[in-house]
């Protein structure tokens, strides 16, 4: 059994790897469940021991991977407060926001065996909640698109500069239109607390979607 500590060089990397892998699955599933793309591009796969729908569209998959590659250095340094999947209408106004609120508790040490099995179990519950969330959400208008927002601190943006250049995937500061939502309805989906990460997922839904 290996024991990791926060001081270990690769501890942040381990957490970021786990979370980015999870966020990739979650984004694919959100796009499928909320019908942002046609169901024909999705294929059933097994992740966290449950069936999920993953896109097989190369450009979309690359886009999601590039997005998460840029977010990863922030998660590694515990600088990503929220990662938000925003579904927007034709006018690029948000209609739904899937908010992943992330924090890493201070930790002295943990066994890697505990880490993997326990966290996987907790993440599975998130996936299951996302796959049934359409039951509690109203239908979206036709022609929706999506984007990913990351809430961080100004100083932390330095950590993602290098990867933006390598991936040729630049990021900009969001403007009011991309962030503001009128009278959102809040729907809590899932909360988890583990030794390495605390995360809660909720949806903010615009009251009037059409």
């Amino acid at each position: 059994m290996t024991t990791l500590t926060r001081q270990d060089l690769n501890f942040g990397q381990v957490v970021a790897d786990i979370l980015c892998e999870f966020l990739e699955v979650a984004i694919h599933l959100i796009l499928y469940v909320r019908e942002v793309y046609p169901s024909g591009i999705f294929q059933k796969r097994k992740k966290y021991n449950v069936p999920v729908q993953m896109s097989c569209h190369p450009e979309l998959n690359q886009y999601i991977q590039d997005t998460l590659h840029c977010v990863k250095p922030l998660i590694e340094k515990n600088d990503a407060e929220k990662v938000v999947v925003v579904i927007m209408d034709k006018e690029h106004h948000p209609v739904e926001r899937f908010v992943f609120e992330i924090s890493q508790p201070p930790l002295l040490s943990i066994s890697s065996d505990t880490l993997l099995s326990h966290v996987e179990q907790l993440l599975r519950a998130f996936i299951l909640k996302i796959s049934v969330c359409d039951a509690v959400l109203n239908n979206n208008p036709p022609g929706c698109s999506f984007t990913v927002l990351v809430h961080t601190r100004d100083a932390a943006t330095r950590n993602m500069e290098k990867v933006q250049v390598i991936k040729d995937f630049p990021w900009i500061v969001a403007d009011e239109q991309e962030v503001h939502m009128q009278e959102p309805r809040l729907i809590p989906l899932k909360t988890m607390t583990s030794d390495i990460v605390k995360m809660q997922l909720y949806v903010e839904e615009r009251a009037q979607k059409t």
């Binding site: 046609p38 698109s145 601190r153």
Partner: peptide, 28 residues
């Protein structure tokens, strides 16, 4: 100032639904 909270998003857009539909049709 450097601790100021910011919200970032990718400059590039994901493929549009129309573009994905065309790809799906070609695949079929």
């Amino acid at each position: 100032d450097s601790d100021k909270k910011v919200i970032l998003l990718p400059c590039k857009n994901p493929p549009s639904r129309e573009r994905v539909n065309l790809w799906l049709e070609a695949k079929k």
